[in-house]
Design a protein around this nucleic acid. Structure first.
Lengths: 146, 146
DNA sequence: CTTCGTGCAAAAGCTTTGCAATGCG
DNA sequence: CGCATTGCAAAGCTTTTGCACGAAG
């Protein structure tokens, strides 16, 4: 129901709300995974078959300019989109085996950030980072298999 | 001259060496930045105008299967390629301002890795990570400007 | 000489854009 | 009712593929 709060806010801000926009917002906020434009479209079609993928792209662009959605890369070469709860910086551990995504808070990186700041004078600016690897389940499965 | 060592090795391993393959290898090993297929092609054309971009893609695929090159993402949505010196795991700090890339060794992440392992049972597998931010030069420039 | 790689051209994704019609506010 | 948004279709990009020729070993 998160998209309804957003919708109310957007409406107050004078944005035009169409069924298509609400639908995309609904999919993006409710699906835990990071979807591609095509996957978002596929999720909408059963509900509203007439929605075109061009519209999905346009709505996604609109959501990006508003800052509600951001394109991310989890290393599979596909452009995926992530819903950005206001001020919620978080990151993901992406299991290469089962494609599960584990959300982790930003503060896990504090140590790394200050290290890079001190050693290289480099100020890290990450709103999102996808770290590939193997989740606990798949790790133990591999261990017992060998 | 790094590509010549690789070439010798590849030759011994029974790979066919063509001017095109050597040229791509040369560009990828000598350019410090991470290039796209198009940029690699553009770098080759002045030398050998007849080389087709389809060949560049094919050579890049070949280099990937051999493990000498890997596709990476630095967050600009473009597919870029990185030369992989054997066993050399390294990462990059990418300045969002000047696009400079600073190479950093893998061990900077050891702390983070063990933290994720302990907290989430997640085994990090990164051969390459691009961390966006601001380099020292651009940081101080911004500071003095404000 | 045989086989594999290349150039060329066409095809195959994915994303964007032009335009007339529709519907939100 | 006016203007932004949509559907449809076509265009743009990047990447891949088919095929006959040419070059490597």
């Amino acid at each position: 129901m998160e998209h309804l709060e957003d919708a109310t806010l957007l409406h107050q801000q004078g944005h035009r709300l169409t069924p298509q926009r609400l639908q995309v917002l609904q999919v993006v906020t409710s699906d835990a995974r990071h979807l591609t434009a095509e996957e978002i479209h596929a999720a909408i079609v059963p509900e509203q078959p007439y929605v075109d993928i061009a519209t999905v792209y346009r709505v996604l662009q609109w959501l990006q300019t508003i800052g509600l959605v951001a394109p991310i890369s989890i290393g599979d070469g596909l452009r995926r989109y992530e819903y950005r709860r206001r001020g919620d910086h978080h990151h993901h551990l992406v299991c290469q085996e089962c494609c599960q995504e584990i959300a982790i808070p930003d503060d896990v990186f504090e140590e790394l950030k200050s290290k890079l700041q001190n050693h290289y004078g480099f100020t890290v600016q990450i709103e999102h980072l996808a770290i590939p690897g193997r989740c606990a389940t798949c790790s133990s499965a591999a261990a017992s298999a060998s």
